[in-house]
Design a protein around this nucleic acid. Structure first.
Lengths: 172, 172
DNA sequence: CCTTTTAATCAGGTCCCCCTGACTAAAATT
DNA sequence: AATTTTAGTCAGGGGGACCTGATTAAAAGG
């Protein structure tokens, strides 16, 4: 049974990490002041991109189901991504009700660099620490997947598949 | 010099953690479907709450400066918090241009429970792992603070003070 | 062939974060 | 006393994540 104080310390650090990393990349954008290069997390448009980089050429409906979104929301995000030239829409030839969404090269690249970028702060860790961190986060993530599973018995498996498979592709 | 593959693995896990934990508490809310109990991160209203729990009774201008927000944005967030009864506004008696913002008991409590909650997923870690994780995250966070410092030479110190001191109070 | 189901779309809405511009009231300066 | 600076407010806007309801076009099925 783990020690409560140790748990609290870790929890605090994890929360701090969330806050600080959020602020760090907020600040990073402003300093660069590039284009509208928003971080693109696993929400909204980012979700779509991630799902497509794991399984390109899905229909909007399939995306909606897989990501547990209303079809209208999906359409909104897809349209925004089209404007940013990260995906394309084309009518299916076999079933003309369907719209097939495909990543453009830029989209694929964006999805890749979004995730495969190794944050500079990892430079400060030793190999041993990196291994420890990876192992620990694997445990934590597995726990979170279980939590999600427990709460949404229906569609969570798809979620896990989407996230984990995508990341595996980019990192391993 | 750390091994690149190990770095990438860790980076992937960290990103995965961000995504999964986000989804987990999104799902958690929907299942509970309680009140409008949003997570309250270190953004917008959450920022204000955190700053106040470290230093109660600041004026809106002071909050804005400290948090690097436009005064109008600050006013917006403060007003929302007033509606939720987490803070109060009162005119300063010494300088009647100023509005002093104070946490209510509920606000203080909210800020506290927001952060002091130990996530269930930490139960799966051993004491050793908790120690390792804490140590590693301390390093990472320090690095991120430095990064922020480097990019915003002006106001970052305040930021670090706000986040770190607050968390230290609750966790240590 | 006609009805039902399915994939999308449009319209409109809620809430969040955050900003600029214009304006008022009170304090500080000249 | 007159002007300038300062703290706040209102109005309005941009972008983001989502959702429900109503409607259209195409496929599927009886």
């Amino acid at each position: 049974m783990p020690n409560l104080t140790k748990q609290k310390n870790a929890a605090g650090k994890l929360i701090e990490f969330g806050m600080v990393s959020h602020t760090a990349d907020e600040v990073a954008q402003r300093t660069h002041a590039d284009k509208g290069d928003r971080p693109l997390r696993f929400q909204g448009q980012g979700k779509i991109l991630l799902a497509l980089s794991q399984d390109d050429g899905l229909s909007q409906k399939e995306l909606a189901t897989r990501l547990n979104l209303a079809v209208q929301s999906t359409a909104e995000f897809v349209n925004k991504l089209v404007k940013k030239q990260l995906v394309t829409k084309e009518k299916s030839t076999t079933d003309r009700r369907k719209t097939i969404i495909r990543l453009t090269d830029l989209g694929r690249e964006t999805a890749a660099t979004e995730t495969s970028k190794v944050p500079a702060y990892l430079d400060s860790l030793t190999n041993t620490e990196l291994e420890q961190l990876t192992k620990i986060l694997t445990k934590i993530n597995d726990n979170l997947y279980d939590e999600i599973d427990a709460m949404t018995p229906t569609q969570s498996n798809k979620f896990k598949a989407t996230v984990a498979d995508h990341l595996r592709d980019w990192f391993m």
